[in-house]
Simulated scan of single mutants.
Amino acid sequence: METPRLRVGRPITPEEFELLEDEQLLRLLPRAYREYFPGKDFCADGFFYLHDGTAWSFYKGGFVDE
C-alpha cells in the first residue's frame, strides 16, 4: 500500500489522523499557521484553534467555517 503524499491543505480521514505523527501533520498546515499547532494530543476532533479564534481542520484541509 502506497503512503499518500503529505501536502499543505490536503484533507485527511480520521484514520489517517490517528496514524500520523506531529511532524507529519505539520506538513499539512500552511506555514503561517504552523506555529499555532498545539500537537496532535490537543486537536479535538481533528481541529485546533488559531490565535484569532478561527479553527483549522485536518479533515477539511482548511478552516472549519469555510
Rank of each mutant, 00 (worst) to 15 (best):
F47M: 12
E16M: 10
E23L: 04
G61T: 07
P38R: 11
E23Y: 03
F47Y: 12
P11V: 02
P4W: 04
L26M: 14
L20E: 01
V64C: 01
P38A: 14
F63H: 11
P4T: 05
L25M: 08
E21L: 11
A55R: 04
R5F: 03
P14M: 07
L19W: 07
L6T: 08
F17V: 01
F42R: 10
C43R: 03
E15A: 06
L29G: 01
P14W: 12
R5P: 01
Y36D: 13
G9Y: 03
G39D: 13
T3Y: 05
F37P: 04
R7I: 09
L25P: 00
P38K: 13
F17Y: 02
E15V: 05
Y33W: 14
T13N: 11
R27Y: 00
G39I: 12
R7H: 11
L20K: 00
L19C: 08
W56V: 03
P38W: 08
L26D: 03
F37V: 11
Y49P: 03
G62L: 07
F63N: 04
A44C: 13
F42W: 08
F42P: 00
Q24Y: 02
L26N: 02
A32C: 14
E15L: 07
D52P: 12
E16V: 08
Y36S: 12
S57F: 02
R10Y: 01
G53H: 09
F47S: 12
G39H: 14
P30R: 11
H51Y: 12
R31V: 13
D52Q: 13
E21F: 08
F58I: 05
P4R: 07
K60L: 15
T54V: 03
L50K: 14
R10W: 04
L26H: 00
Y49S: 09
T3D: 08
Q24D: 11
H51Q: 14
G61L: 10
I12L: 05
S57A: 13
I12W: 02
L19M: 10
W56L: 04
D45F: 11
D52I: 06
L20N: 05
